[in-house]
Design a protein around this nucleic acid. Structure first.
Lengths: 101, 101
DNA sequence: TAGGTATTTAGGGAATTCCCTAAATTCGCA
DNA sequence: TGCGAATTTAGGGAATTCCCTAAATACCTA
C-alpha cells in the first residue's frame, strides 16, 4: 500500500471521475462499446478518453499512473487495453484510512 | 465532503505526515511543547514546522489548506494557532471511499 | 503604548503536473 | 508482408504546486 502514490493518482478531477465511471460502466459508457466481457475486463482506453473529453495519450497516461498505484487493473487483449477497478485495493485504502491514517 | 479538495490536501508527503503526527502528538512532538490541553487543542504551527523541518510560512499554509478541506481543526488561542485532526471527517472519508467511490 | 513572539500574507523562483501533438509501437488480418 | 486501428512513448508549452524570504498582522505583557 503506497498511500502517497495512491492519493496522488486520485488527486485530479478527471482521474477521480474515471474511477467513478468504472464503478458502473453500463451507466457511464455507450452500450454499443460494452460487451458481456465488460464486467471482467473493464473499458478500453479510447472509450474512456472519449467519455473524459480528453486526448487518448493523456488518458492512457492517467490510466497507467492509476494502475501503477494498483488502483486499476489493466488487461491487454489484442490491440486493446482494458482497465477496470481494483476493488480489493480500494477497500484496503478505505480500511487504511479508517484504521491507520 | 469535497472529496477532491480532501485528496489534494493529502497529496503531499509533508501534509500526510502532519496528519499522522497529529494522531498521537505525545509520540511525535517534544514533551516540553505539549500540555494537558494538547489532546483538545492539538499542536501549534511552529512546533509542527519544526518537526517537519520546513519554514513556518510553508507549514502555516499547509495547515490552512488542510483545515479548509475540513480534515484539520484550527483553534486560535492568544498568539498561537493550534491544529488537531478532525476525526469525524477522516472517518467520513474512509466511509465515502468504502461505499461511494 | 512599545516591544517581543506567533502567525499569516505577499511575492516569486524552481519543480512538478497537466494535457496537447507527433511519432513510434503493437497487434489483427487480408 | 503490409495496412489499419489502438495504444504508448516522446517532447514540450502552460498551469499549478512547492516552499522559500520579506513584510505585515495579531496578540501578549511591561
Amino acid at each position: 500500500m503506497e498511500l502517497l502514490a495512491i492519493i496522488k493518482s486520485l488527486s485530479n478531477e478527471t482521474r477521480l471521475n474515471i474511477l467513478k465511471w468504472l464503478k458502473d460502466p453500463f451507466a457511464h459508457f455507450p452500450e454499443e462499446e460494452l460487451s458481456e466481457d465488460t464486467p471482467a475486463l473493464g473499458v478500453c482506453v479510447s472509450d474512456i478518453a472519449e467519455k473524459a473529453g480528453m486526448s487518448v495519450p493523456t488518458v492512457s497516461d492517467y490510466l497507467k499512473t492509476m494502475s501503477a498505484a494498483n488502483i486499476l487493473i489493466a488487461t491487454r487483449k489484442g490491440q486493446w487495453t482494458y482497465y477496470k477497478r481494483n476493488e480489493k485495493s480500494i477497500q484496503e485504502l478505505a480500511i487504511y484510512i479508517k484504521e491507520k491514517l
